[in-house]
Amino acid sequence: MNDNTTPYITLRNVNFSYELEEGVKLSALKNINLDIYKGEFVAVLGHNGSGKSTLAKLLNMILTPDSGTIIVDGKDITSKDMTEDDVFDVRRHVGMVFQNPDNQLVATIVEEDIAFGCENLGIPPKEIRQRVDDALKTVGMTEFARHEPHQLSGGQKQRIAIAGIIAMLPDTIIFDESTAMLDPAGRDEVMKTISSLNRDRGITVLHITHNMSEAIEADRVIVINDGEVYMDGTPAEVFSQVEKLKSVGLDVPQVTELIWRLKKLGCPVSADALSPEAAAEALLPLLKV
């Protein structure tokens, strides 16, 4: 869905390191160059400690890079003359949803929590009400508006966290392993919400995940390994390089693995299937023989 030719987010030669103690630095990102276009659904894969969460935190100025340039929506967010207002403007445009749903809800009532971001932006009360109702509808939680967060399931809480970001009307939402702590049902709910945001609202999505089957749903997969961009392409392109992924200890989706193994055994399988349906289609002719 790269309908724009100018990238929405650009990273050029970005380096970042954490200072462990005086003088001891741990390099987290090395010379990153990336272009992300408006409306893209990008999955970011990588190990724990590969630097993928660090990458996310650079994009909304929770962290600032040691060197390099980051441009968001035509604005250089690494420039020295960024004022506090500019920082908050970037954060309004690039929302972020985290891993633990419990640790990102602020208020004791669902709708009050969704309103929190808008309240911080100083939006007039009537418009906040409108936005909160819209956001609740978008994530399908309207009937829970007056509930307390601790009465909700993990998936529901995560949808509330998403609604809180949507209400700020961002162009891009970064999901930092937002499905990692959820059960399969909750994961499903959240993934549906994420893809509908991308499809129906044209929101650019950066989905950081460990889960390969979630990465398949993206338009583009970026693999980060050891602080560097290791692979970048469509899910089909990335997951067809099974050996390259395995060499850095990453898995491929189960069906891709199955077909890859069959191929290795000399089976004449044609496609690099990503979904179970596609795999079934590819395997069916073989079974009929």
Binding site: R91, F116, N120, L121, I123, P125, I128, R129, I165
Partner: peptide
């Protein structure tokens, strides 16, 4: 909270 533009009471409204 920082990601949701919280900066204390500055310019804050209420729903």
């Amino acid at each position: 909270m920082e990601c949701r533009c919280y900066r204390g009471d500055i310019g804050r409204t209420r729903m």
